[in-house]
Design a protein around this nucleic acid. Structure first.
Lengths: 139, 139
DNA sequence: GTGCTTGCAAATCGTTTGCAATAGC
DNA sequence: GCTATTGCAAACGATTTGCAAGCAC
């Protein structure tokens, strides 16, 4: 709790109870949740929390680079606390998102350039059928 | 017109006037339009067309692999007729999307596997500031 | 005619906004 | 006390759905 609080203070973010709790959830639950999933989880411990606060908080975290936003599904944003350079795999069957530990060889954010455009973010998305679903389908 | 019609017939899609027209727009206008942009353009030539038809049509095209869906902005879907393997760059300043002619070295759709998951689609998204905006800002 | 396609209107869902109440330095 | 944060309700925008009318083979 104190470490999380410090993390927010270090970023210049006022460490409110809501923000610390959401950061904690994201750290212990690196499952690329939607805003709704965060909201549902938070409500168990804090029934008065509002969805607005969830959105406010993830926006604050995004602005400070504490989390990344994934737009892989096209339906809703997913939030990822794992900010090191990696890619994602979306299963078209079960909807689960997996981390894929691949480094992009085309450049590093903030450092490199593609066709003259300055790159800040790199997103690699794979879509297909995950190992789990492949196994279930073949059996 | 006939070539476009044939393309639809070949895919087993009934070549209605609306579908041919939308395909024509996408082929001559590979600018990753939104459904709304397609709708606005189509209305000029066919004022009675409905947004539902635009959505129906792009869904049909997607199912048949005639186009790809880009979820790069997180706001709305973009449609791309260019089905060869390439990546995209989104400018955070002007919102323009550029094609980036890079091949993904991690596998090819339908053929390869990552962490045991079967890959059907590969999407590479870069975000940053485009060459145009860099030039304008520095001058 | 039968079945698919079209297009209108209404519904849905994720997200944002306006604003008053609240909390923390 | 002042300022930022919270949370409610309403608005919004992209997309989907229900359904009646239209079209093509």
């Amino acid at each position: 709790m104190e470490a999380l609080k410090q993390k927010l203070v270090d970023e210049g973010i006022k460490p409110t109870f809501q923000r610390i709790s959401i950061l904690k959830y994201l750290e212990e639950n690196s499952k690329h949740p939607t805003a709704d999933m965060i909201y549902d989880f938070m409500r168990k411990k804090m029934p008065t929390i509002s969805k607005t606060t969830v959105y406010n908080t993830v926006h604050t975290f995004l602005e400070n680079g504490l989390i990344n936003e994934l737009t892989i599904t096209g339906q809703e944003s997913r939030y990822d606390i794992n900010t090191h350079n990696h890619h994602h795999f979306l299963c078209r069957n079960c909807g689960k998102i997996y981390d894929v530990d691949i480094q992009c060889p085309h450049g590093l954010p903030g450092k490199d350039v593609v066709d003259g455009h300055k790159i800040d973010e790199i997103h690699g998305y794979f879509k297909g059928i995950c190992q789990d679903c492949l196994r279930k389908n073949s059996s």
